[in-house]
Structures are given as C-alpha cells and as structure tokens.
Amino acid sequence: MPDPLLPQPAVQPPSITVNGLTLALAPTRETVSIGPFAKCLPDLDAALASTFGVTLPADFSTASGQDGLQLTKAAHHQWFAHAPAGAGLMARLAPLCAGLAALTNQTDSRVTLCLRGTGADAVAAKLVPVDLAPHHFGPGHTALTLAGHIPVILSRPDGTSGLDFTVFRSFARSLHHDIHVAMKGGIPHSERV
C-alpha cells in the first residue's frame, strides 16, 4: 500500500507582507454545509443548541458555539459549520442532523485568505462592492459578494482588525493575486486609516 496522500495548500507562499499589510492563508478547518429540509429548521436549531449551544444565525453573521463550532450563513437557505481540523465535524453532525438537513463536506472546496493590518478595509474596498464601514460591517458580520470578479464570503473576524476572504479553492490563486495587487497600489489619499 502506498504512503498516505499529503495535502497541498491552494496558495503559496503562505503569507506575504506589503506596505505593512499581510495576506495569509488561514489554516485548513473542517467545513460542512447544512441545508435544512422542509419545516425542519426548529428541530435542527434545537439539536444544534443542545449539543453545541448555538443555533443557525438568521442573518449574515457568524455564531460561535462549544467545541470551536462556528455557524455562518452561506446561502439564502444554507449554512456552513466550521470547526478546527481534526474535530471530526461531519461525524458529530451526521447523527444530530439526520433527517433534518442535507450535510455536505466542504472542507476542501474553499480556502480562506486573511488580510490584516492598517488600511485593510481601504485595500478590500478596491475589490469588494459592499460598505465596510464599522456600523455596516462590524465584527462577526459576513457578506456573500464578489471580490472583483470572484465570488467570496467576506467576513470580519472578532478581535482582530482585518477581513477574511473565503473563496472556492480553484479561485484562490487569482484572488491572492488580486488582493496582492490592491495591497501594492497603496491606500487612496482620501481614505482614513
């Protein structure tokens, strides 16, 4: 039997720094999409609440539960559950959600690029057509939108200044390039950072 397969990151190098801003590939985490079946949402929420102490957020935000579980809305009627690598997320969710929701492994389908540093919002605004002002898009908020021509889930993590771009794996290198170019272009004079 051959050796085990080794994972290959979607983007290299893992981190770059330009003009005091960094762009880094987030560590891989387990992701499972949850698509509730008809009329199952209350039961599903109850099941999630009893095990993880969290329910599916109604708006585009991230809710954190026990054991590192995070729930974020990923479509008008779908959510992503995230957990740190090795959590065995699918195995834990499958019995909980049986008959209540479609569960689909999405661990490998998306990668997250983290933009950090002073002026991250001004750089992101070159790509993302949503209002990033703090009162519109604060910590914990997410938005399904476009970065340039690339669909992304944009989120503002709690506790750090910056933005996370979660993107289909096949787009990761193009998005990395586009953000890198935006970083190099600098902060527009009019922007307050």
Binding site: G35, A102, N105, Q106, D108, S109, F168
Partner: peptide, 15 residues
Amino acid sequence: PDMDVQVISVTDEWA
C-alpha cells in the same frame, strides 16, 4: 418550491 431538496456545488471539494 414545494419539493424538499437541497443542492450545493461540490466542484471544488473533490479532485
């Protein structure tokens, strides 16, 4: 809309 079905892309999930 009454059909109870969920669809999601897994194109990028699998090599």
